[in-house]
Design a protein around this nucleic acid. Structure first.
Length: 665
RNA sequence: GCGCCUGUAGCUCAGAGGAUAGAGCGCUGGUCUCCGGAACCAGAGGCCGUGGGUUCAAAUCCCACCAGGCGCGCCA
């Protein structure tokens, strides 16, 4: 609702400035005043114009306020402070429009919406997911939900590096440390205690020690890697078995928190279908990569990086100091090379495609597809061919992401390079206290650090499933203490929803470039600025209606808007309590505007903050006003309608964060 | 050495160049016979890392410095 109002106001200001001063403006800044009582929205433009026009800001503000064309939903404009144009909304009109909007069904993508691919999660399929992966998935999934809310067409991809070193390492573990046959590992994968990904978490750490004891053993890794890339033989079968079983586990873990995917492209198909050969040809033809014939990179195909280019394009490839190696001297391609091919495919620029097979069906019937080297199963959607690609990958890989985009650009795809967005976020470490609790030994220096970076190779860190289990257990205790008579299945379900809320909000409440020092104490909190607080606010609002239905069985929420006339709304939005109601209503009306900002800034934390603010505002309102017992029927209908508006907007915002509202708390 | 990120209340974090810098936690004190307290209110607590600059206006933009983190591999 508010988003349109902003657009209309910007146009109006632009028009007024043009007619009054013959000045063309591109951007018009609108901002919320520090205090709601000053205005609903303010424009500081007069300060900027004062100099050019040699008038005082106040004078300009006054003239512009007077020259402003009528805007639907805006009651009046006046001058504020030293020269702001202050806008005051038509409260009743905005309220009723917001009510209508909050009751309209959520619609699908716009008919003309171009496809956006969001790649996230991307966990190596060789061990269990950990808290860092949870941050990635929570960010990626919320961003997807936000894009869909703003009616974009989105495809979610989760890239599976099933032929890499990490998978090779656990294969070495099974073959050489544990001497297990394919059949034995199959049996292990079929069991659930422990699940295979948890089993491999420890095995991977043991393999790291195994190498450290005798570095010669690294040859085993190289051999395994070659066998896996080749794709035939026992070792390759084992790798396929282990990685696929672990991918299934990752899907289970992510489904626990409501994260789903459309497609799982795998590195093995990128190899088998010769994606790289196609990309290699293009890169060679365009001169985007060069063969170094002497020097330290002799025999490698390299790409000039930004700094190398700056030095001079005339420097021969052999002498480049910081060129990025794309093809090794032994002819194998690096990860970045494969990633360039994959990125080209996402835009439909590679000239090749995967085949697809159904991999998994979620309980709601949605299907996750996986890349395949065989013939496609019927019914596969047209994957790829995106206009824009977001890669949700932690900030440590920004150098490599830059190279991928540079590779796309070097092939002449300037637009697509610009639309290759690295959706970067800082890592999740452990607080020193948390690390100690997990039995990780710290040096005196590490003790003083804000966070500890953990090593998956050493089996350190907090597993995603374990954290979820701890959250569920803690939430169940809370639920049971409040509702001792609930049956176990119901309290389990409630505890699960609360746990997910706590976890997702914990990951989303901070901005992307904040490093998280994970700590159980913070993550397990359900009070204050947390997911459960938000859920509780909605549950409270809904309890009002439940209570009402008990005492008045004929009560219908659908009939509420008709019971509040524009005149009544206008009256109730005046005076001191009217200001209070308006503060709540106007914030609730902001959801669409908020979503637009979040998408343009690519920062889901803003929705989390906004939602928390609205919940706070509602709790204050709830505390001050008794609704069910309100004697005046007109006022009561109004309060109920306001509560319903807030409840709906909060629930929608929570859905954007991936948080469900429990029946009770 | 080069590149990216960070420095705001005791702690964890918000702060699209604009009006008196905010929230949660913690601390102190209060609210409620209720639509459930996972709540609400109040208080204490800030040279916004330091120093320059740009601007009518800087926590926000620019430069330098200090402190911390992360990258910079024929690993991914």
């Amino acid at each position: 609702m508010i988003a349109q109002l902003h657009r209309a106001l910007r146009d109006a200001v632009r028009a007024a400035v043009k007619t009054r001063y013959q000045v063309e403006l591109e951007a018009v800044v609108l901002e919320k005043p520090p205090q709601a009582k000053l205005a609903d929205l303010a424009c500081p433009l007069p300060f900027e114009l004062a100099r050019r026009l040699k008038h005082s800001p106040r004078e300009i503000a006054r003239e512009l306020a007077a020259a402003l064309p009528r805007v639907e939903g805006v009651e009046r404009a006046d001058v504020g402070g030293g020269g702001y144009i202050n806008f005051h909304f038509d409260r009743a009109a905005v309220f009723q429009a917001a009510v209508r909007e909050s009751r309209a069904p959520v619609t699908g993508p716009r008919a003309d919406a171009a496809k956006i691919i969001v790649e996230h999660t991307n966990i190596n399929p060789n061990k269990a997911a950990h808290v860092g992966h949870l941050r990635n998935a929570a960010l990626g999934d919320s961003f997807v939900r936000l894009l869909r809310f703003t009616r974009q067409r989105v495809e979610v991809q989760n890239y599976i590096d099933n032929t890499g070193v990490q998978v090779a390492d656990v294969v070495v573990g099974f073959e050489h440390l544990e001497k297990k046959s394919v059949v034995e590992v199959e049996k292990l994968a079929a069991g659930s205690s422990p699940p295979l990904d948890h089993y491999c978490w420890d095995l991977y750490a043991r393999v790291t020690e195994f190498y450290e004891e005798d570095p010669q053993r690294l040859d085993l890794r190289a051999q395994a890697l070659m066998a896996i890339e080749d794709g035939s033989g026992e070792t390759a079968r084992l790798a396929e078995l282990v990685s696929t079983a672990i991918v299934r586990r990752h899907l289970e873990t992510m489904a626990r928190l409501g994260v789903y995917y459309d497609l799982l492209p795998r590195e093995s198909e990128i190899l088998r279908l010769k994606f790289w050969d196609a990309a290699f040809e293009q890169l060679k033809q365009r001169g985007a990569i060069e063969l170094a014939t002497t020097g330290k990179n002799k025999g490698c195909w390299v790409m000039r990086t930004a700094t190398a280019e700056k030095a001079s394009a005339a420097v021969p490839a052999d002498e480049l100091d910081d060129a990025k190696i794309i093809v090794r001297s032994n002819g194998t391609v690096t990860y970045v090379g494969k990633d360039i091919a994959y990125q080209l495919w996402k835009f439909g620029l590679l000239g090749r495609d995967f085949a697809y097979r159904r991999f998994h069906t979620y309980p709601d019937g949605r299907v996750v597809w996986m890349s395949s080297a065989e013939r496609s199963e019927p019914g596969a959607p047209p994957f790829g061919h995106a206009l824009t690609v977001y890669n949700v990958i932690d900030a440590r890989q920004s150098y490599l992401q830059d190279i991928v985009a540079a590779g796309v650009e070097a092939l002449g795809h300037r637009e697509q390079a610009a639309r290759s967005v690295h959706f970067a976020y800082e890592m999740v470490g452990l607080s020193p206290r948390c690390a100690r609790e997990l039995g990780i030994e710290l040096s005196a220096e590490e003790e003083k650090r804000p966070f500890i970076e953990v090593s998956g190779r050493k089996g350190q860190g907090v597993k995603a499933d374990d954290l979820l289990d701890a959250l569920e257990q803690s939430a169940r205790r809370e639920v049971e203490s409040r509702h001792p008579d609930l049956d176990p299945a119901t309290s389990d379900l409630l505890a699960h929803k609360i746990a997910v809320a706590a976890l997702r909000f914990f990951m989303l409440r901070v901005t992307r470039n904040t490093t998280i020092a994970f700590d159980f104490k913070d993550a397990l909190s359900f009070d204050g600025e947390t997911g459960p607080y938000l859920q509780y606010s909605v549950v409270r609002a809904r309890n009002i209606f439940r209570k009402l239905r008990e005492s008045e069985p004929s009560f219908q929420v659908d009939g509420l808007p008709a019971q509040v006339s524009p005149a009544a709304a206008k009256k109730l939005f005046t005076g001191e309590s009217g200001d209070e109601f308006w503060a709540l209503a106007s914030q609730a009306a902001e959801l669409d505007w908020m979503a637009e900002i979040v998408v343009s800034q690519q920062e889901p934390a803003l929705v989390a903050k906004w939602t928390f603010g609205l919940a706070q505002q509602f709790n204050l309102f709830y505390h001050r006003h008794h609704i069910v017992s309100e004697a005046d029927p007109e006022r009561r209908a109004f309060l109920l309608l306001l509560t319903d508006l807030v409840q709906r907007q909060l629930a929608r915002a929570l859905d954007l964060l991936g948080i469900e509202v429990p029946e009770r708390m």
